[in-house]
Amino acid sequence: NQESVVAAQLIPINTALTLVMMTTRVVSPTGIPAEDIPRLISMQVNQVVPMGTTLMPDMVKGYA
């Protein structure tokens, strides 16, 4: 089963992602794949992401 990127903390809107903000977990439905974490660093979220929420492609500016 593929791991997806999950918020390790509350991420406010327009925050640039850092490694410490993200963790990985096997979730359903699947979100952004864990191997894309290096690509996500410094990208901004376009909404508030509560802790434990799976990051979906449409939540990250410039990802999709």
Rank of each mutant, 00 (worst) to 15 (best):
L55T: 01
L17S: 00
G52Q: 05
Y63T: 05
A34P: 14
T24N: 07
P38D: 11
N14M: 12
V26T: 09
T23H: 11
P57R: 08
L55D: 00
K61P: 14
R39C: 04
T54M: 04
V6R: 03
V20K: 08
M22S: 00
L10E: 07
P33H: 12
Q44C: 04
V60C: 03
P33Q: 12
Y63S: 06
N46Y: 06
L19R: 11
L17M: 09
V60Y: 00
R25P: 01
P33F: 07
L10P: 08
D58L: 07
G31W: 02
E35P: 11
V5C: 03
M43L: 07
I32A: 02
S4H: 03
V60R: 00
L17A: 00
K61S: 08
Q44Y: 15
L19V: 10
I11Y: 01
P50C: 05
M43A: 13
L55Q: 01
A8Y: 05
S28I: 10
V27C: 03
Q47N: 08
P50R: 07
I37Q: 08
A7R: 02
R25G: 15
P33N: 07
T53W: 12
M22W: 02
L55P: 01
D58E: 15
M59L: 05
P57Y: 10
P57I: 05
L17T: 00
P50N: 09
S28N: 11
R25S: 11
L40E: 00
Q44K: 12
Q9R: 07
Q9K: 11
L17H: 00
K61M: 13
I13K: 08
M56I: 08
M56D: 05
V49T: 05
L10C: 04
T18G: 08
D36S: 15
P33L: 08
V6M: 09
I11W: 02
L55V: 09
V49Y: 01
V48H: 14
A34M: 06
L40N: 00
V20H: 13
T30H: 14
A8W: 04
Q44L: 12
G31M: 03
L40P: 01
T53K: 10
V6D: 00
Q44M: 12
V60Q: 00
P50F: 09
I37G: 06
L10T: 09
P33S: 10
I32R: 01
E35A: 10
E3L: 15
N14L: 06
T24R: 14
R25H: 08
T30P: 15
Y63A: 04
G52M: 07
I11H: 00
M56F: 07
V48Y: 13
T24H: 08
N14H: 13
P12F: 04
L10D: 13
T23K: 08
V45P: 02
V6W: 02
R39P: 02
E3Y: 12
N1H: 15
M43Y: 10
T15V: 08
N14R: 07
M21N: 06
P29V: 13
P12C: 04
P12Q: 10
L17F: 02
A34S: 08
D58H: 14
S28Q: 14
A64N: 13
Q44R: 15
A8N: 08
D58R: 12
M22I: 14
T30S: 14
E35C: 03
A64T: 14
Y63Q: 07
V45T: 13
T24P: 14
L17G: 00
P29I: 11
A64P: 12
R39L: 06
I32H: 01
A16F: 12
V48M: 14
Y63C: 03
D36E: 12
V49N: 00
T23Q: 14
Q9I: 09
L55H: 01
V27P: 01
Q9N: 05
E3K: 15
P38E: 12
I32K: 02
P33V: 09
Q2H: 15
S42W: 05
T54S: 06
V6P: 01
R25K: 15
M56W: 05
I32M: 03
A64Q: 09
I13D: 12
G31Q: 04
I32D: 01
V5T: 05
T15C: 03
V60H: 01
D58F: 10
T30I: 14
T18L: 06
P38S: 09
M21T: 05
P38K: 06
S42P: 02
V5Q: 01
N46R: 09
I13L: 15
I32S: 01
M21K: 04
S42V: 03
S28F: 08
R25C: 04
V6I: 12
S42M: 12
R25T: 06
V45M: 05
Q2V: 12
A16C: 04
M51E: 13
M51A: 15
